[in-house]
Structures are given as C-alpha cells and as structure tokens.
C-alpha cells in the first residue's frame, strides 16, 4: 500500500484548508450563531419544546448535520475538481497510487475537515443553549460516518463536474434544500399529511433523526433504520467511486 502517497494527498488537502482556516471556521460559527439568534431566540420563543426537548437545544443536532452535509460535499468535490481544472490531475493519474488509496487521501481529509467544523459548531452552540448528549460515542460515530458518506458523495460530484456551475449545483440546489426539508428546524411529526409521508423519501431526515437520537435519545424515525439508510448511502457512494476508477469516467480518456 502506498501510505506515503495517501499521506501526501491528505496533508496537501489539509494544508489547502489551513490556508483559509479563518474563513473555514468563522463561516460556520457565524451561521450557527445567526441560526440560534433567529430561530432559537426570535422565533423559538413561540415553540417551547419539541418532543420534550427545549427548542434551542432541539436545533443543535440539526444545525450541525446541516453544515456537515454541505461542508463534506463542498470540501471533497473541490478537492478533486481543482486538480482537474488546473490540469495537475496528471500527476495523480501517473502516480503509483491505487483508486482506493487516492479516495482515502481525499475523502479522509474532507471528512476530517467536516468533523472539525461539526465540533466547532457544537462548541458554538454551547454558548447559546444547554447541550445534552445522551450517547456521545454514537454521536461521534454518526458525525464521522455522515461526514465520510457525504465526502464520498462530494468526491463523485467533483469528478462529475465539468465546470464550477456544475460543481456548485449539487451542494446549493440539492443538498441545501434537502437539508432544510430534512427536519433541521422541526420534527417531522409537526408536518401535516401527505408531507409527513413525502418527507420520509428525503435521506437527510434519517441522518438528522439518528443524530438527534444520539443527543436526546429520541428521533423521528427508529435509529436502526437511520443507520441502515446512512450505511446504504455510504456503500452506494463507494460502489460508484469504484466504478469511476475502473472505467476512468471523466478522469481518463
């Protein structure tokens, strides 16, 4: 195994993030703070509790998950898209490194960055509300698993994208709407039918629900179903990445 190669890609990607570390960290902190001020403070006063959890605290898992999904997709997609855009991808393709090793380097770095941002948001949240974590290990595992799955998804987007418009299309017009409709700010029990049933087709619902379960012990859907959906999405992304490298789709001529 080319461990040096994996480490080189991982370090390179982390160095790229560190070059804009303040932007990377301040943006989620600012957005989280605004969300707590607007939804937790201004509007949250009208909703005292959701499922027995104070509304401000109820928001925390959803807000973390929301940033996690967008950041994972964005970080991983730009990581592989940028070498394609600048032409430096030739070096990756001509290096003695397997597809899986390359994915470990890129996706590992994107996952690390997303987890770090998730933890920063969690720390920021404690400044506004009391945060309770009933299942800390499950919370950490879900944080990593979700970051990993969506970083893999982002990696696929980065390979698929032929221009910056396509690169931004999925995070902006697919992931963000799905996140907002995925129960970040509300419990799906609060939705009337048929929207309650429709929303169950949104995979983000399962991620938010499982993450919320790790905090408060309850979620919108059973945690095992949520874990199954997340693991299924991860396996699907792995299969697609494997196919991309076997065929060289959008990477090799």
């Amino acid at each position: 195994m080319n461990l040096n190669g994996i480490w080189a890609i991982y370090r390179f990607e982390m160095a790229r993030a560190l070059r804009t570390v303040w932007q990377s960290l301040i943006t989620p902190v600012l957005l989280t703070s605004l969300n707590f001020i607007i939804f937790g403070g201004a509007l949250g006063g009208r909703i005292q509790e959701v499922g027995g959890v104070p509304y401000g605290s109820f928001l925390v898992p959803g807000l973390i998950m929301s940033s996690l999904l967008v950041q994972s997709v964005s970080n991983a997609s730009i990581g592989i898209y940028f070498p394609k855009f600048t032409g430096t991808v030739f070096e990756l393709l001509s290096a003695p490194i397997s597809a899986m090793e390359m994915v470990i380097g890129f996706v590992g770095a994107a996952t690390t960055k997303s987890v770090a941002i998730g933890l920063v948001i969690l720390a920021t949240a404690t400044a506004f509300v009391t945060v309770r974590i009933d299942h800390p290990f499950a919370m950490a595992a879900l944080l990593i698993l979700t970051s990993l799955a969506f970083s893999l998804f982002g990696f696929i987007i980065g390979i698929w994208a032929k221009n910056f418009e396509q690169l931004n299309f999925v995070p902006t017009l697919v992931v963000t709407p799905l996140t907002f409709l995925g129960g970040v700010f509300y419990s799906i029990d609060m939705l009337p039918q048929p929207w309650r049933t429709v929303t169950l087709f949104n995979p983000v619902v399962y991620l938010v629900s499982a993450f919320r379960w790790s905090f408060f012990g309850t979620g919108d859907v059973p945690v095992l179903i949520s874990l199954g959906v997340t693991a299924g999405f991860l396996l699907l992304c792995l299969a697609v990445v494997g196919w991309i490298f076997r065929t060289g789709w959008r990477l090799k001529n």
């Binding site: 040096n4 390179f12 600048t86 070096e91 290096a95 003695p96």
Partner: peptide
C-alpha cells in the same frame, strides 16, 4: 499548483510516488 511553495510541491511529488 500555484498556491503551494516550491519546496512543498516538490516534496509532495516525492511522497505521492511512494
């Protein structure tokens, strides 16, 4: 990569090749 230093990018290439 235009944003890297000369030393960093050359060292990166060595590691990438194992």
């Amino acid at each position: 990569d235009m944003f890297e230093t000369v030393l960093a990018t050359v060292s990166y290439s060595r590691r990438l090749f194992g």
